[in-house]
Design a protein around this nucleic acid. Sequence first.
DNA 1: ATGTTGGCACGTTGCCGACAA
DNA 2: TTGTCGGCAACGTGCCAACAT
Lengths: 704, 704
Amino acid sequence: MITFTDSMKEPVKETEKCLDSQLWHACAGGMVQMPPVNSKVFYFPQGQSEHAHGNVDFGNSQRIPALILCRVAAVKYMADPETDEVYAKIRLVPLRNNEPEYDDDGVLGSNGSEVPEKPASFAKTLTQSDANNGGGFSVPRYCAETIFPRLDYSADPPVQTVIAKDVHGEVWKFRHIYRGTPRRHLLTTGWSTFVNQKKLIAGDSIVFLRAENGELCVGIRRAKRGVGGGPESPSGWNPAAGNCVSPYGGFSVFLREDENKLMRNPNGGNSNSGGGLRARGRVRPESVTEAATLAANGQPFEVVYYPRASTPEFVVKASAVRAAMRIQWCSGMRFKMAFETEDSSRISWFMGTISSVQVADPIHWPNSPWRLLQVTWDEPDLLQNVKRVSPWLVELVSNMPAIHLSPFSPPRKKLRLPQHPDFPLDGQFPIPPFSGNPLGPSSGPMCCLSDSTPAGIQGARHAQFGISLSDLHLNKLQSGLFPASFQRLDNNTTPPSRIPNSLSLVKGNPNSTENISCLLTMGSSTQSSKKSDSAKSPQFLLFGQPILTEQQISLSCSGDMVSPVLTGNSSSDGNLDKTANFSDGSASALNQQGLADNSCQGFPWYKDRPTTDLSLETGHCKVFMESEDVGRTLDLSVLGSYEELYRRLANMFGIERSEMLSHVFYRDASGAVKHTGDEPFSEFMKTARRLTILMDSGSDNLGR
Amino acid sequence: MITFTDSMKEPVKETEKCLDSQLWHACAGGMVQMPPVNSKVFYFPQGQSEHAHGNVDFGNSQRIPALILCRVAAVKYMADPETDEVYAKIRLVPLRNNEPEYDDDGVLGSNGSEVPEKPASFAKTLTQSDANNGGGFSVPRYCAETIFPRLDYSADPPVQTVIAKDVHGEVWKFRHIYRGTPRRHLLTTGWSTFVNQKKLIAGDSIVFLRAENGELCVGIRRAKRGVGGGPESPSGWNPAAGNCVSPYGGFSVFLREDENKLMRNPNGGNSNSGGGLRARGRVRPESVTEAATLAANGQPFEVVYYPRASTPEFVVKASAVRAAMRIQWCSGMRFKMAFETEDSSRISWFMGTISSVQVADPIHWPNSPWRLLQVTWDEPDLLQNVKRVSPWLVELVSNMPAIHLSPFSPPRKKLRLPQHPDFPLDGQFPIPPFSGNPLGPSSGPMCCLSDSTPAGIQGARHAQFGISLSDLHLNKLQSGLFPASFQRLDNNTTPPSRIPNSLSLVKGNPNSTENISCLLTMGSSTQSSKKSDSAKSPQFLLFGQPILTEQQISLSCSGDMVSPVLTGNSSSDGNLDKTANFSDGSASALNQQGLADNSCQGFPWYKDRPTTDLSLETGHCKVFMESEDVGRTLDLSVLGSYEELYRRLANMFGIERSEMLSHVFYRDASGAVKHTGDEPFSEFMKTARRLTILMDSGSDNLGR
DNA sequence: ATGTTGGCACGTTGCCGACAA
DNA sequence: TTGTCGGCAACGTGCCAACAT
C-alpha cells in the first residue's frame, strides 16, 4: 500500500529513487564507466541524438557545437520502473573558458574515496532451461558459494530461502536447493515467478550482487535482440554516413527490435496523461534538443543515458577525447576495441583497421569527431553492425608507445593541458581572439595514407623505398617513435584486404638520413625541436600521400612549406585557423580528387575564421612550452603589455605567473633569441616570432 | 509486427489512434456528453487541475481566468493503450469577443449529421462469477439476442464464436454457448483470457456494442474503487473549501485508490525516456498549467479529459453554464442531480438542498462558479463524497417551470444569447468599454436565504408572514412564477434539517398586493416590465434576508432601491459592475457578520471596474429585448451613430441589422418613449435611459 | 432470467533425478 | 560442473449442470 502525503506534492518524484551505484554498474555491464562527479567530460549532442527515438531536429535556429566541454555536476543512478533497465541522469555544467578549477578526472571534487572496490557479483546469461517456465535456475557453483548466503550442507538436501532485492528495492524470494546427482545448486520455487514478472527470456542475464551491507541484490541485463550472435555491447554504430534522412542506418534495426519488444510487452506502457503517447524507451527527441540547446548556451542541463541502449556513450571523459584527438587518425591504422561478450560476462578485444577517416555527418555536424573512424574488422562476421566508431573508443595497436605519451619527458614536465579555451566553440560562444585547441596540443604526427592515390600526383620529387607495413614493423624504426599505427599485430594472421601493402618514403631533400634520424628521435623533443628547427623537412609518402612529422608541422611557422597538399599552415595544434583551413581548403581539393575518403583528417572545428593565408597572420606567434614539441599560436597584437602576456601564458599552460617572469624567451624576426623585457613591449610584439617558456633554468634548448 | 517508416518520424504518433466515437461513448458511460465540434464551451482550468495528479501551481506570473469561453475545434476519442480507459483530447480555441460566427450548440459547423443514433449496446457489470478466473460469463439474454450475432438454435447445444474488437481494434474471440437447465447464454472459452488480460475484477463493466458496420465491439468500464457503495459517476467532489494546500481533500482518497491500483498493476507503467518519471494516469500538472496559460492568452490549446476519472467535466457546454448562472443560487434551494448508478448501467437522480453558496477556492479562483454549491443530500450515505457541485450540474427541483426558461415566451422569441462579449475576462483580456455578462442576461430572481440571520437586522420595515416552505409549496404562489427554489418535492418525506422552516415576506410599501401580483406574473414579462416599471418593489424576507424579484433587480435602474442589504445595484444581468459590487460590498459585509456562508452570491467576475455607485453610470442604458425580462447595459457614449448602435445591438442579441431599424424604441430621461431616429443621435445618446427591441410589431409593451 | 456452487476433467506448472556435454 | 530432458505430482483452469434467487 503506497501512502501519499497529504498535499500530494509531486508523488511522481517518489519514483525518482536512486539505486545503489554498485548494483547499477553491475547491471550496466563491465563496459560502462560513468564519469565521476566534478570530472570534465565532453558532451556530444550528436551522440545523444542517436540515443533518442525518431529524428532529432536541432533546427537551424542556432548552431550547436559538436561537442561541449562540461563538468559533471551530478550523476543519478536509476532504473526504469517497468523494465528494470538501468539508466543514469547526468547533470552537466558547460564549462566556460575561464573555469580552470576542475581537473580532468574530477579527483579534486570527489573527496578521494571514489574508487570503490568492486563488490562480489555474478552475472549469468539465462539458458533455455533457466528461462523455460517449467524449470528452475541452475546456479553456477561460484555464484552459490561466493554470492549467496552460505548453505547448511548438513541437511539433506541442503535448502535455504535466498532473499534478494531488485533495483527497486522489491524483495524476491527463491528456494535455493543443492540436490541431484551429481549435486548442483538450483533455484526452484520463486524463480519462475521472477522470470515471468521480469519477462526474462533466454539470453537475458541475471546479476547477483552481494552489497556492502551484506544484502543480496538482483538485477537484470536484457539481451540486445537482433544481432546475429556478435558481441553485444556497443552495437549501434552505423549512422549512414552523410545520409541526413535516416541518421540511423543499419542501427535502426536495433531500435526497431527493441521497440517491438517494448510494444508487445504488456509492460512498458504508460497510463500517462497524454494518453500514452510519449515515446517508449530511451529518450525523446525533444529532450535531446533541449539538452543541446542548454549546453550550447552554457547553461546546466541534464541528460539521460541508457548504458545498455545500443549506442555509445555520448558523455565522454574529456581526457579520453583529448587523448584520442591528439592522434592523427589515418586510414590503415590498426587498432583494437573492447566489446562486451555476448553473455556480457567478459570483455573481449577486437582488432580492426581504419578504412577511412571521415566526418560521420558532414551536413549536420561538419566538425565532429563523433564516429570519425570507419573501420574494417579482422572478424567482420561478428561485428557487422559496427562500421563507424569514435576515436576515443579504439586503442591503437602497437608495441611502440604512442607518440603522444611523450614517454621521455619527465613526468613533472608533462604538458599540462591548457585550461583556458576549452570550448570547441563552433558558433555559440564568442571566440576569443586566441583560441586554443580544446583537445590540447597535438603531438601526434600528421600523416596521410591512401591506398588509391596514384603515387606522384604531387609535384614533389620522390623515391619509392618499397617499405611494406610488415617491413616497417620489422624495421627498427618502430623502436623509435614512429607513428604507432602502421604495423599489424604479431598475432594478426589474417590481414584484412584493405591493409595497405606498400609504403613510399619520399625524400624531400638530400639530407634524408639526418631527417630520418630526426624522425626516429622526434619523441625526444628537447633535441628535435632544436635540431629540426630550421631544417629542410623530409617527405614521407605513403601511397602517394605525404607524411609529415611533428616537426614539419609545428615548425612550419618558420617558413618552410612542407607539402603542396597541406596548403594550410599545418600546425596541428593551437593554430586553429590553419587547421580549419586544412579542411576547408586543401581537404576539399582532395575531395574533388576523390581522395578525401581515405586521407587523414585534421579537425576542422574552427571554421569561424577561414583563412587562406599560408603563414601565420602578422602579430601571431607560436608559443612553445619548454621541451614539449607542441606549440600554440598567440596573437600578440591583442596584448598590451608584458603583464598581459604573462597572464595569458600562465593561463594557457597552467603555470604560476610568478614563475613566468624569468622563463620566457623569444626569437625575433631576425632570428635573435631574447628574454622578454629585453625590448619594449611594442617592439617585442612586432618582432617576436617564436616564444618559449623554459621552466628548467639549466637547459638551453630554446633555439638560441 | 509494427513497422516503422524509414525516417522514423514520430513513431509515437502511431498510437494516437482515434477510436469509434460510439464505442467511446459506450465506455464513457451515459453521463458523459462531449461537446460537438464548433460548439461553445467554457473551459475551467480549476476543474482541469482536479483532473491532474499533484498540485497544480498556476504561479502568480499571470492571472488565469476561472473560466474561458472556447470553441471546440476538435475532439479526438482515444483510449489508453494499457488500461483501455477512454479519454478525449479536446482541442479548444479561446473565443475573443469578436467571433460571433459560432452558435452555442455547434450545429452550424458540424454539417448537420452530428446527431448519431445510439447504436445497440449493452453494458454489464461483472459479477463475482463473471470475474472469477474459474468461470465464464453469464450473458444477459438481452445482450445475447440484440447485440451478439444470431445463434443457430437448432444445434444442440447452440454454440458460436463471437468475435469482438476492443478499443484498440484488437480482436477477441469468445465461445458463446446456450446451454444448461434452464437454458442460458454463456461466454466460456476466451472469456477468462480476456478477464485476465484486461485485469477485470467484479464490479468492472463490460460493454458490448454493435457498430454501424455490424462489427461487434467490446469495451470496458472500470469500477471506481474506494466509494462505499454509493453511486459512482462524478465522485471527486470535495476540494477542501478554501484550503489551498490540499485542493483535493477527501477526493484524494479516490485518487489514491486508483493510483494504487495502477501501481500494483503490471500494466500502466511506462518505459518512458525520462525513466518512468511521468505521472501515471490522468494528467500531469504541467499540462494543466500549459493549457490554462495558452487559454488565458487566447491561443488554441488541447486538454485531455478522462470521462471516468473521478472529476467532473471541466469543459462544459457554454449554454449549460450560462443557463445555470442565470439562476441566482441560494442556500435552501432544492435540486436534483444525475449520477450514474453503481453498475454504471443507469442514471439516477439524487435530491439535495443547497447548504451554502460560496466560492470553492477564494484564494486561487475568487471569481469562479466552479463547485460553487455546497450541498446536503437527502440520502447522505450514498453521496458522502459529494459535498460541492457546480451549478450547471444540478437541476432545480420544482413543479413550476424555472423562471429562466421563460415558458410563456413563444419559442421563436426565445432569447438568443448575446454573441459579443463572451469572456468572463478577469484580467487577461482587454475589457471592452462595454462588457456584457458572459453568461447572458440573468433572469433569475436575486434572493437571499439564511437560516441563521436574526430577523430584522436590516433597518427595513418588515412583517412576518409566517409562510413556511411547505406553505409556499401548497400556496398557489407556485403556480405563478415564483423562483423555483423554495419548496420541497412532494415525495420528499424526510426533509433535511437545514431546510429553512420559515419564510418572511416583508412589505416594502403599502401597495403590496399589487406587487405580489406583479411577482406572480413576472414570468410574463410583457406585462411585468410594463407594470412594475416604476413600481415600488415589495420585499420578501426569508430568514431575515430580503428576496428580490426579477423586476426589482432588472428595473432597479429606474431608481428604486430595494433593500439596504443589496447596496450595489442589483440588476442581475448585464450590469456587471453592479453585480460585482454586490459581492464586493455587501457580501463582504455579510461575511463580517458571519452570514455569507449561507447567503446567495452574485458572481464577482468583473472586479475590474469596481463601482460603489448604485445607479447606472452616465451614458449607460439598459437594453431590453422585446418581451424578455432581461436587460443588458449599454454604454451609449462609446457609440457614434445610430448605425453603430444597431450594429452593436444586432451583435448583442443576434438579430439581423436590417430587422433592427424599425424595432428599436427607447424611453428618455423624461419618460417619453421614442423611436430611434426621432432625435439626433447625440440627443438620443444623452437622454436615452431604457431601450427596447420589439420584434413583434403588433405589441406595444415597451412602456410607451 | 441469471447468479452461485461444487464436481470434474484436463492442461499446465514446476520439482525431480537421469543423462549428457 | 551444469544444461537439458522426461517423468510425474500438484495445482489451477475452465466447462458443466444443479441449485438458488
